[in-house]
């Protein structure tokens, strides 16, 4: 795969002094879904807004499909769509008019069939003649997505598209994102629902205090940084573990009736059978066992906290 979006040494310092982005390098591959994760104020929206031309970078440069977003802004913006985090909509325009306006704004000839397709895909067709101010928050969110899709972008930014929407709309949106991926659209997604990123993203990037601290394929990230948790329900409660098991990171829980073991996800095949044999050798019997893999959310929280700790130590 080749990079559709390439960000090099991107730096942004706002007039107030906030250093929002610090020499960010990032490549987004053609056709992938990339989840950009980070706590509030990490620089996600600044990064997106620079690519889209809304914020001026202090230094660095960005290319979309090999074209510079400043020198060839007409081409890059023509092929880039943005669904903003906030519900920025006109109040008095109808749904159909505002989506048609977006297509014209991006320099495309009217195409009523495409507009109808977009509105139908987003369940907005029945509301096409309604003024936007009469719509619910969820429907307004759909309108913003329809506006971003009106000009058939190659690269689509979804800045927290499911923030504050109900479960049904969130699932609709996941389906829509999958459908867009099928048509070859490259999607950069920011979200606070890490489950969403885990479910959909091919790769995950974590941004913290304006720096990209990790970019990894989602599966590989889960393997590398994910933890698995094994719980053994003991036949006979124990007050303490035999000293011979001290080299294992085992803990007793539930008043000695459960033995917990946490290990790196990629060590599963090597360590679990060995542990079970050791327990058998020690005469520790169990009636049931459960395993659970840590979620991307847990990995994300660990990463962010780890970074906090490093900052605190440095401070």
């Amino acid at each position: 795969m080749t990079a559709l979006l390439s960000i090099e040494n991107l730096d942004k310092r706002y007039a107030g002094g906030l250093h929002a982005l610090k020499s960010v390098d990032l490549d987004i591959e053609r056709g992938e879904i990339f989840a950009l994760l980070g706590p509030n104020g990490a620089g996600k929206t600044t990064l997106i807004n620079i690519v889209c031309g809304i914020v001026t970078p202090t230094s660095g440069h960005v290319t979309v499909d090999g074209r510079d977003t400043v020198r060839e802004f007409r081409w890059t913006r023509r092929h880039t769509g943005l669904v903003p985090q906030e519900l920025f909509t006109d109040m008095f325009e109808t749904v159909h008019d505002t989506v048609s306006f977006s297509r014209g704004l991006f320099g495309l000839a009217p195409d009523p069939d495409h507009i109808e397709r977009v509105l139908r895909d987003l369940s907005l067709w029945d509301k096409r003649d309604s003024p936007i101010m009469t719509l619910s928050g969820g429907m307004k969110r759909r309108v913003l997505i329809a506006k971003a899709l009106a000009h058939e972008p190659k690269l689509l930014f979804l800045d927290e598209p499911t923030a504050g929407v109900d479960v049904e709309l969130r699932r609709d949106m996941w389906r829509m994102i999958e459908k867009l991926r099928g048509t070859g659209v490259t999607i950069v997604l920011t979200t606070h629902y890490i489950e969403e990123a885990e479910r959909m993203a091919d790769r995950v990037g974590v941004i913290r205090r304006g720096e990209i601290i990790l970019v990894e394929e989602t599966d590989s990230l889960m393997k590398k940084l994910g933890r698995k948790h094994l719980s053994l329900h003991l036949e006979h409660p124990m007050s303490e573990l035999p000293a011979s098991l001290n080299d294992w990171t085992l803990t007793l829980a539930d008043r000695g009736r459960r033995l917990d073991y946490s290990f790196a996800a990629d060590e599963e095949h090597s360590c679990v059978p060995v542990l079970l044999k050791r327990l058998q050798a020690e005469g520790i019997e169990f009636t049931n066992l459960n395993t659970r893999q840590s979620t991307l959310e847990e990995i994300f929280v660990d990463l962010v906290h780890e970074d906090d700790d490093v900052h605190e130590e440095a401070g």
């Binding site: 889209c52 809304i54 913006r77 943005l82 006109d90």
Partner: peptide, 14 residues
Amino acid sequence: FSGTIYEILSAPVS
């Protein structure tokens, strides 16, 4: 005021 300027600024309009 309404924030819809984001769309104008992100469009290929000088």
